[in-house]
Design a protein around this nucleic acid. Structure first.
Lengths: 184, 184
DNA sequence: GTGTAGTGTCTCAGATTTGTGACATAATTA
DNA sequence: TAATTATGTCACAAATCTGAGACACTACAC
């Protein structure tokens, strides 16, 4: 079933997001399959990792793109895209993490990197518009805001994991912290 | 030399913060020693990890405690302690990460956990005071703010790593994002 | 029922990681 | 200089992780 492949990918994103070098057995366990089954779907660790990235980019890029075109003006867009990003959850943060690793040399030549850049192109473009319009605090930089955004997503995920807040409540808090935090 | 032990610990914190299951060779490399030397100072991975936690708690607890007593009132304290936390950098975030791992069951009985709680006792106590006084947005919870704080530290660290902003500038931005983000 | 697709179990070889012993070398101190 | 200390090099066994073959079992389709 295609279902198994998908659930392994989802499991891998969760596990690797916490522990990049975690043994594949952990991923298999989380996906409730055997390591043997995992290997039937993915040749090796690298292939699994690649599929994870592909999956993430697909999901995030679509969500962000939809959100972008769903709104009419930059200010509204920001909020819509913010919630879209929240809903991508750990997919979002994992991708971001991979591209900010200390030994990761970000370069446009690398296809992975350029795809990463592309995933957040609309988002960052919109940020830039709001920055030049003065809607966002002028001292900010696009990169700071983007990192800050990713961080707030992590806070949101945490709050959901330990079940301290219900989803709607947490979403509200997240938007509050983010929007105020960038000076809106 | 005590120096070597310390630099291995520092290296381990940096490496493990990015990749919890990273091979010890990576830690040794970062510390510019051989794996053999690393093992002379630390019996095994677990002992190294424990020493890391001890080091972190010592550094963070002292920094936070100093900051606490250096200020006269809760509002001022918040800012002083915030900067103290920033300066602890990845020590701060690594400790927090360890105690929010998905399979980590936080419990007071566990000595590690109670020490962790103690490290941020003053900080959280002060947050609670500001919350009940209404200085901080009432919809917030102490846990949310604490997680949010940790996230902002990550943003700060990132900005320092890629050298996008100088330290003073980044500190200012961090405080802005944090304080506004909790509704001050 | 028979066939087929998906998965689990068991097994195993190869790779990687880990921890340590033995000894050499460089640096420091007496 | 001689002794001591810290570290590096090499070697090695044990443990763990990885990827795959062989075969059994289950469910579902025909």
């Amino acid at each position: 079933m295609k279902d198994t492949e998908q659930s392994i990918i989802e499991a891998a994103i969760l596990i690797f997001n916490e522990d990049l070098s975690a043994p594949l057995e952990k991923v298999a366990d989380r996906a409730q399959v055997t390591r043997r089954t995992l290997h039937r779907y993915f040749k090796d660790r690298k292939e699994l990792m690649d599929k994870c990235q592909k999956e993430i980019r697909k999901a995030c890029a679509i969500a962000m793109s939809d959100a972008y075109y769903a709104s009419a003006n930059p200010r509204e867009r920001l909020e819509t895209m913010f919630y879209a990003g929240l809903d991508c959850g750990s997919k979002n943060t994992f991708l971001h993490k991979l591209h900010t690793l200390h030994d990761h040399k970000h370069q446009v030549a690398n296809e992975e990197c350029s795809e990463y850049d592309h995933t957040f192109e609309l988002w960052k473009g919109n940020l830039q518009v709001l920055l030049t319009k003065g809607v966002i605090n002028q001292g900010m930089t696009v990169d700071w805001i983007h990192n800050f955004f990713q961080s707030v997503v992590v806070v949101f995920i945490n709050s959901q994991q330990n079940g301290a807040l219900d989803r709607a409540e947490a979403r509200q808090l997240a938007w509050f912290s983010f929007s105020k935090g960038i000076g809106i």
